[in-house]
């Protein structure tokens, strides 16, 4: 039991991004290769604190507790303010649920803000900034898992990257394994203002390798992101992070701010690149009586054309 709990805590502190690039449809026309990548992110800790209501882009699961950036520097928004800030459509969808959940949310409100500013590293924000070019100060805990897709150009190839953001909550572990497996790249995220989130990277890396059990765990591509560099109270130096990355086999390291969209694009570009490289490697060393040929050159698109 206690082990499970630690796991959850760890999860909360960083992102796991398993990007998995996939075989794609090779067709006679158009796209030469489309690839999907999966990215897994760690959990939100808020769940462990019994907190819980949360939401996502579609709306109604949520009563969104207000959140303001880190350490109480900005006063938390009031509930009503948050609601005003939300765009109307979303509001209309979720309003019913909010009313019923408001009381519950208020109850937890205080504790949540304190803890949040300490523990969350901004995985979902990074994803949103990268895919939707949006940043919000409102905090929504990720429940279970979520994913976003984005098409990117990597080395002149159009690649569909699927980015997974997961909560490492116990109950979702069963849900987890299916997509941890087959990830092509894993992104670890920590908060540069929180030393403990940096320290947890080790555990997270190990955890991922256990869960995903990639064929070549020594060389599995990771990317490390230090987030929230827009904040002043930095506590993990670039040097220190770089040293850690170096010791793990020259893991690419990026410092970003999801809030100010600093470096986010570059970081994910690197993720996509590494993931794609990983996939190409997989093709070469595919030693099983291989199901599907991933490499377009090995299998002309004969089988892929529509036979209807």
């Amino acid at each position: 039991m206690s082990i499970l709990n630690t796991t959850k805590l760890m999860i909360s502190r960083k992102i796991f991004a398993g990007v998995r690039i996939s075989p794609a449809l090779f067709t006679d026309q158009g796209k030469s290769l489309s690839t999907s990548a999966y990215f897994l992110a760690g959990s939100q800790w808020r769940l462990e604190h019994g907190l819980g209501k949360c939401g996502n882009e579609y709306g109604p699961l949520t009563s969104i507790p207000d959140w303001s950036y880190a350490d109480g520097r900005a006063a938390p928004l009031s509930y009503s303010k948050t609601r005003r800030l939300k765009d109307k459509e979303e509001l209309a969808k979720s309003i019913k649920k909010q009313i019923t959940q408001m009381d519950l949310a208020k109850e937890y409100h205080k504790q949540e803000i304190m803890d949040l500013s300490k523990k969350r590293v901004g995985k979902t924000s990074l994803m949103n900034q990268y895919v939707n070019k949006r940043f919000t100060n409102q905090y929504k805990a990720t429940i279970g898992a979520d994913f976003l897709t984005k098409e990117v150009m990597v080395d002149d190839r159009l690649v569909t990257m699927q980015i997974w953001d997961t909560a490492g909550q116990e109950r979702f572990q069963s849900l987890g394994v299916a997509f941890y497996r087959g990830a092509d790249c894993c992104v670890l995220v920590y908060d540069v203002t929180q030393t403990n989130t940096f320290k947890a990277l080790d555990e997270w890396r190990d955890e991922f390798l256990i869960q995903a059990s990639p064929r070549d765990s020594e060389n599995f591509p990771f990317v490390v992101i230090g987030n929230k560099i827009d904040l002043d109270n930095r506590s993990v130096s670039t040097k220190r992070a770089q040293n850690w990355c170096h010791s793990k086999g020259d893991v690419p390291y990026f410092e970003t701010s999801a809030k100010e969209a600093l470096n986010v694009e570059q970081a994910f570009q690197a993720v996509a690149k590494n993931a794609l490289a990983q996939e190409n490697e997989m093709d070469v060393m595919n030693e099983f009586p291989a199901p599907i040929t991933l490499n377009p050159t090995n299998q002309p698109s004969k089988d892929n054309s529509c036979s209807c």
Partner: peptide, 10 residues
């Protein structure tokens, strides 16, 4: 992505 019954244009 590997399915063969439907073409990419569909």
């Amino acid at each position: 992505l590997d399915t063969s019954a439907l073409s990419v244009s569909v």
